[in-house]
């Protein structure tokens, strides 16, 4: 391809890898949190809701600093993961994925939670009276009906994490080929005299990826709503 140089393709590939890994790691946690917040009433719920949303409103540099404290070489979580799984984050692309995951979490939880709240729990009641236990009911009714919302959350979170900058640069710095994702590379190119053309090319790629993800996410959400409505044409 003539649009981008091999180094620039490398940046795009690294960004996609970081975001993909971030989403895979984030999805189970996001779904569990969304389910808790949508379906359960428990003490401390408002606090949990606020904690989940914190990355949305905190300065990203603070999130990056907190990640340094927790997952750095001397941080408790960092030491534990290094000792047990041999997993390290400092100055590595895995750290960029972790920062992206944390920053994308609130967005994913929101989207998935909305889709779970839209599911008619009377359908789950019907499944129970037909002989389905709670788990079978979850996997045969709840999860399939939540699937468009899950995918929408995944795509939106992916787009969000492609744009992640502040927490990443604070936590794992901007190391070409390791932690320098698209936004970090754009920022670096801006510092170099004559880097304008590279900035423009990378920014163009950013816009295309983000726009594509937003369109895909919106399409999935709409499909989910149609599907829900389709279930009760007679009652309403």
């Amino acid at each position: 391809m003539t649009l981008l140089s091999p180094e620039e393709w490398g940046i795009v590939a690294l960004s996609l890898r970081v975001s993909a890994v971030a989403m895979l790691g984030c999805l189970p946690l996001a779904f569990a949190l969304a389910w808790l917040l949508a379906r359960r009433r428990f003490p401390g719920m408002i606090l949990l809701d606020a904690l989940v949303h914190l990355p949305l409103v905190l300065p990203p540099v603070v999130i990056g600093w907190l990640l340094l404290l927790a997952f750095g070489t001397h941080g408790p979580a960092g030491r534990l993961l290094a000792d047990t799984l041999g997993l390290t984050f400092m100055f590595r692309w895995t750290g960029a994925a972790l920062a992206s995951a944390v920053m994308a979490l609130p967005l994913m939880v929101r989207v998935i939670r909305l889709s779970l709240e839209a599911i008619d729990s009377r359908l789950e009641d019907a499944a129970r009276t037909l002989g389905a236990g709670p788990w079978r009911c979850f996997f045969s009714i709840t999860l399939p009906l939540a699937r468009p919302g899950l995918l929408a959350g995944l795509v939106l979170g992916f787009a969000r994490s492609l744009g992640e900058f502040g927490a990443t640069i604070t936590f794992v710095a901007s190391i070409p080929g390791e932690t320098q994702t698209l936004p970090l590379a754009i920022f670096a190119a801006l510092q170099v005299p004559g880097g304008d053309a590279e900035v423009a090319r990378l920014a163009f790629v950013s816009i295309v990826l983000s726009l594509g993800a937003l369109v895909a996410s919106e399409t999935l959400v709409r499909r989910g709503i149609d599907r829900q409505r389709a279930g009760r044409p007679h009652a309403l």
Partner: peptide
Amino acid sequence: CGYVFQDIRLFPH
């Protein structure tokens, strides 16, 4: 107990 609901509740998917 077979239950036939007022609002029918067929599984839409």
